[in-house]
Amino acid sequence: MTWPNGSQLWGTTKLTASKEMSSVLTSVALDGVRLGGAPLQGIRLEKGFLAAPDLAPDKLTGAIFQGTASDGGPVEVAVCGAEPSAQDSSLLSYRIEIWNQSKEAWENPCIATQQVPNPKALAVQSLWDERGANRDEPGKFTFACETGAIAKCIHWGYKPWATKDGQPLKDLHQACTRMVRADYCGDGRSHTRQDHVIDMYDTMGIQARTTVASANWVPSKASFEAAWTPEGASCLARTRDGQPAQSVLKQCPKRFELGERDLGEGDHCAAHLKSPRTGTAVLRNHSYGPQRPGTVTANLRRTP
């Protein structure tokens, strides 16, 4: 199924403009919460929504959480509203703001786009580091903005807390975040730009390959790009941003080597992992060839 990708992981404003994997908000604590000036105890995160004793999940408006930026600095996070997600009513979308000390004002940390001018956030049980790797840390969670890879992959069906046919989806979600950002080396570096459309399909049948042309996608104009594991790409046919494949090999020389691999269904790799890894490929994607900014077909589907 075809969706627009992007280079953002959290979907938040960068803490340092020149640093790709910096963020004004990377984690939020479940303790130290205040509501109406009083401590609010017993906050927990359950399958995509925050809950508190004797309070409905959508009644946390006004609660102040304690968060952390990518440099470890403290950040106050206010929940300004919560409503069922327009894409999945089982999820709650949170309107959040953080306190900007330099401006002495509250502001939305989520990056707005033309398609999503007032982005909201999902509450996700896991944290991500500057290399794009996730980990669980008791008592902490991520507010993932809907224009970032973490939230996009959840909206596409890869809920990290869910299972399908008894199989957990956490690894599939992590692989999806790598794919969205074209993080081939699994080191946090992106090789794409916002809204470059991709077609993805997975081993669990949640998303299927698009084979019929439509206004959103023309399969004959696309080609296989990569297969994905939670640690990054396992094999690579070409880059999404038009860089030579050799540039990726230079970026992570211990990971890939040149060599043809046939994955079946017409998917062929030009480079693959040097040695077996613990992660196995759970996703593949096709994409259009590199395009100059502003040349994306106007009628391609636009979703967060």
Score class of each variant (00 low, 15 high):
residue 48 G to D: 09
residue 91 L to R: 07
residue 189 R to N: 07
residue 126 S to F: 09
residue 99 W to F: 15
residue 96 I to L: 05
residue 279 G to S: 08
residue 24 V to I: 10
residue 95 R to D: 14
residue 280 T to N: 10
residue 114 Q to I: 12
residue 193 R to N: 10
residue 209 R to C: 11
residue 223 S to G: 15
residue 287 S to F: 06
residue 257 E to V: 01
residue 37 G to C: 04
residue 274 K to F: 04
residue 154 I to T: 03
residue 82 A to P: 03
residue 159 K to Y: 13
residue 132 G to T: 10
residue 255 R to M: 04
residue 124 V to S: 07
residue 80 C to Y: 02
residue 138 P to V: 09
residue 221 K to L: 10
residue 157 G to M: 10
residue 286 H to R: 15
residue 21 M to W: 02
residue 203 T to P: 01
residue 270 A to F: 14
residue 3 W to L: 07
residue 52 A to I: 01
residue 173 H to I: 05
residue 172 L to A: 12
residue 62 G to N: 06
residue 108 N to F: 05
residue 94 Y to D: 06
residue 78 A to E: 14
residue 168 P to E: 06
residue 151 A to L: 04
residue 120 K to C: 03
residue 73 G to R: 08
residue 210 T to S: 14
residue 37 G to Q: 01
residue 281 A to E: 10
residue 222 A to T: 13
residue 236 L to A: 06
residue 208 A to Q: 15
residue 11 G to H: 12
residue 94 Y to N: 05
residue 239 T to M: 08
residue 101 Q to L: 12
residue 47 K to H: 11
residue 15 L to Q: 14
residue 136 D to F: 06
residue 86 A to E: 14
residue 132 G to K: 11
residue 7 S to A: 13
residue 133 A to I: 01
residue 226 A to G: 02
residue 16 T to H: 11
residue 230 P to G: 09
residue 142 T to V: 12
residue 235 C to L: 01
residue 204 M to V: 14
residue 27 S to P: 02
residue 194 Q to A: 12
residue 252 C to K: 08
residue 235 C to Y: 04
residue 304 P to E: 15
residue 235 C to D: 09
residue 49 F to N: 07
residue 54 D to G: 00
residue 296 V to A: 10
residue 272 H to P: 00
residue 169 L to D: 11
residue 73 G to T: 11
residue 290 P to T: 13
residue 210 T to E: 15
residue 167 Q to S: 11
residue 112 A to D: 08
residue 94 Y to W: 08
residue 55 L to D: 02
residue 265 E to D: 15
residue 272 H to C: 00
residue 161 W to S: 11
residue 52 A to V: 03
residue 122 L to V: 07
residue 300 L to W: 13
residue 120 K to A: 11
residue 208 A to I: 14
residue 284 R to I: 00
residue 247 S to I: 03
residue 37 G to H: 04
residue 63 A to P: 07
residue 15 L to I: 04
residue 183 D to M: 07
residue 13 T to Y: 07
residue 167 Q to V: 15
residue 232 G to Y: 04
residue 283 L to K: 03
residue 212 V to C: 01
residue 190 S to C: 08
residue 134 N to S: 14
